[in-house]
Design a binder for these strands. Structure first.
Lengths: 244, 244
DNA sequence: CGGTAGATTGAGAGTCCTCAAGCTCTGTGG
DNA sequence: CCACAGAGCTTGAGGACTCTCAATCTACCG
């Protein structure tokens, strides 16, 4: 269990994927942190409509945000990876407009909602970072909306795979030209507004074309260039991100 | 021209739609404001890929954020109304990941990018508000993504109309059970990932069903209850929002 | 060795798309 | 004052992408 790790020894911070913080800020973050929470694979971190908002940072594992319609159809809004803030919207408004579900077993740092205010007051930098993180997720959803609205099945799946690969690799999760890929085809379908059947068929077409390989929960992209061309996706290299 | 209006006399603030600020905060906001910018109908406020980010608040008129694929297909990410922050993402990252276009003639309050930092440092409340506003737009896009991914044409158009009506009414723009609706069918189509033709056919079906009336740039919803049922949309009443 | 979650494959149906022609309304200029 | 042009909307027809239904297959687990 990594439950008792202190923020000063946080392994996430050591990955160089995140921007450095001062000693005082680190100390504040430690005091801001209430506890570590474990959520089992497939369980809810936050349920839709939950009233009391808790703010988390995803520490380990994979999760996603989603919304459900009353006919049961579910839209995955975006996938969450270590370092991502969870529950910011709930903390600000009242009532959670969306749910969060763990894909794998997940560890989260839960924060003292009461001290959120202190964060802005005592550490403007961290307040700024908070906005930064919100804007970053914002950008991810924009990209998803573009996919779902304007790309066809192959294109949007290509996009999803590239984006996942980039984000996971940035966190240092890459091994032998592959990254962990814990999602089922149903997850992909729900994220892109496709049916499971069509997702399956499209994935195997991409596989035959030599554009993707998913095996034993690992994703590799044998021809990233062709994939980016298919998805019509050209983004800048990823920058360091704040971590709270 | 409303160009010279002082923040203290800001007519937007008088609408009761926004949360009150202290005298010092108001003073800061005034000093934060660089100038008023006018953008003509159909012109760009921010172009895709623009490098230098300017932060605005939309003061008057209607606009939208969008992304374009190289094949020319365009996705409208969300519509912007008075009080909305424009360009936050650009201000934080470098390079604009999306464009912003004016639907009607538009007036914006342009801010001193240099003082953004001061805002967080000197006025934590406003920093908090900044995050709040980012999270609020976030919620809007979530809802759009749900529409585009999981709702069919009638449902997502219903959703769009309800949402527009609610937002416009909240700003005090309602008259005789109708609100301004400056969008063309092409805008609706681009926002929902539909073709113009299908949008037209679906809109006239909704009209025949007595669910919507758009005439001379005004939208009225004769049967809001049926429309919310169609869209499967049940939201809480809108709360006061920060205004910067 | 069943039982279950996830993936695959085939077939038919439906929503939505593209192409194309025509309509309405508004503003402009001869 | 009226014809013309352009933007936006409407309508019809055929086709494509994606969906639902359904059966089968594989892998993993108790």
């Amino acid at each position: 269990m990594a439950v008792d790790i202190k923020c000063a020894q946080c392994p996430l911070r050591k990955t160089k994927a995140f921007s450095p913080v001062s000693a005082e800020e680190l100390e504040f973050i430690q005091s801001f942190k209430k506890k570590t929470v474990r959520v089992a694979e497939g369980e809810l971190v936050i349920s839709e409509g939950a009233s009391a908002g808790t703010l988390f940072t995803l520490f380990e594992g994979f999760a996603f945000r989603f919304k459900t319609l009353s006919n049961g159809r579910r839209q995955i809004l975006n996938f969450l990876m270590p370092g991502d803030l969870v529950g910011l919207q709930e903390s600000l408004s009242s009532g959670s407009p969306h749910g969060v579900e763990a894909v794998t077993e997940v560890l989260l740092c839960a924060f003292n909602h009461d001290k959120l205010w202190d964060l802005y007051r005592a550490h403007p930098n961290l307040g700024y970072d908070m906005t930064w993180l919100a804007a970053q997720e914002h950008g991810l959803i924009d990209e998803n909306l573009l996919s779902v609205g304007q790309r066809n099945a192959s294109e949007s799946i290509a996009m999803l795979l590239i984006q996942h690969y980039r984000r996971a690799e940035r966190l240092g999760l890459g091994r032998d030209n592959s990254v962990p890929f814990p999602y089922t085809q149903q997850h992909i379908a729900d994220a892109l507004g496709l049916s499971l059947v069509h997702t399956s068929k499209t994935l195997s077409r991409l596989k035959k074309m030599g554009l993707q390989m998913i095996k034993q929960g690992q994703l590799s992209l044998p021809n990233p260039y062709a994939l980016t061309k298919l998805a019509d996706y050209y983004d800048l290299p990823m920058k360091v991100t704040p971590l709270i």
